[in-house]
């Protein structure tokens, strides 16, 4: 019996949902939520197409999957055109950048190509991060930091779950029962994210943001040294 080493389903689903959550956390107007919904629907169609393909109906599966990919990417376009009516459409468009990452993550865990799967997930993650960073940079003076924090944590959870799906698939194949390990892993990541967000908020409320830029740079330098030390 041939073992199929494709990424595991549960973690893949977590990855896609967390990616959608990351974009949704940043969204502020209903048109953006609609765009996220369209992208998710596209990914769903893609998954259905892949399932049909694997059942042996290749002629039917490929077009369905292609439609899914198209709809997945179209979510971003639809969102952009819908938020065009607002004055702050530039900001709202920026908040949707992460939506471009959603289909990439989905293609990565499908996987459309086994060797490329990690790269595709990373590419999707990069878009999610870009969305968060853009939102933070442009809209950073908004009153509430929580969407930003949730967005970045959800992006990390999405990437982590995608990678977990891939490495579990690599090691155990797709016939093994793996969902407990997948749930415990992603659960751990999410809980840790929650804790770090809490810590961040405590720091925020301690009003370190009143510090001058030089001290922030110094802090950044210290963080850099810490990271280098961690990965040496």
């Amino acid at each position: 019996m041939r073992v199929d080493y494709r990424p595991r389903r549960v973690s893949s689903a977590i990855a896609v949902l967390a990616a959608a959550g990351s974009v949704a956390a940043l969204a502020t107007v209903s048109e953006q939520y609609l765009a996220v919904g369209i992208s998710l629907a596209g990914v769903l169609v893609l998954a259905f197409g892949a399932a049909v393909y694997r059942r042996g109906l290749r002629v039917l599966g490929v077009p369905i999957a292609l439609v899914g990919v198209a709809v997945g990417f179209a979510g971003f376009g639809v969102g952009v055109s819908l938020v065009g009516v607002y004055d702050r459409s530039f900001t709202y468009t920026g908040e949707l950048i992460g939506l471009l990452g959603l289909p990439f993550i989905a293609l990565g865990v499908l996987p459309v190509h086994r060797r490329l799967s990690r790269r595709l997930v990373s590419l999707g993650f990069a878009f999610l991060v870009l969305g968060v960073v853009f939102t933070g940079a442009v809209n950073g003076t908004g009153p509430d930091p929580i969407p930003l924090l949730l967005g970045i944590v959800a992006a990390i959870v999405a990437w982590d779950a995608g990678e977990q799906a891939i490495n579990l698939g690599d090691q155990l194949g797709s016939d093994a029962r793996t969902w407990p390990a997948e749930l415990s892993h992603s659960g751990g990541t999410a809980v840790f994210g929650g804790l770090s967000v809490g810590t961040g908020l405590v720091m925020f409320n301690a009003d370190i943001t009143g510090l001058p830029l030089e001290s922030l740079l110094l802090l950044l330098g210290a963080a850099l040294v810490l990271m280098v030390a961690l990965y040496k």
Partner: peptide
Amino acid sequence: VALFASAVGVLANTPFLLLATVPVAAYAA
């Protein structure tokens, strides 16, 4: 990711983005 986000945060002078790098840096550890 942490370095990129914090660099943009410093350049754009946005404390919220710097705050958002706290969980990212925490994930590094």
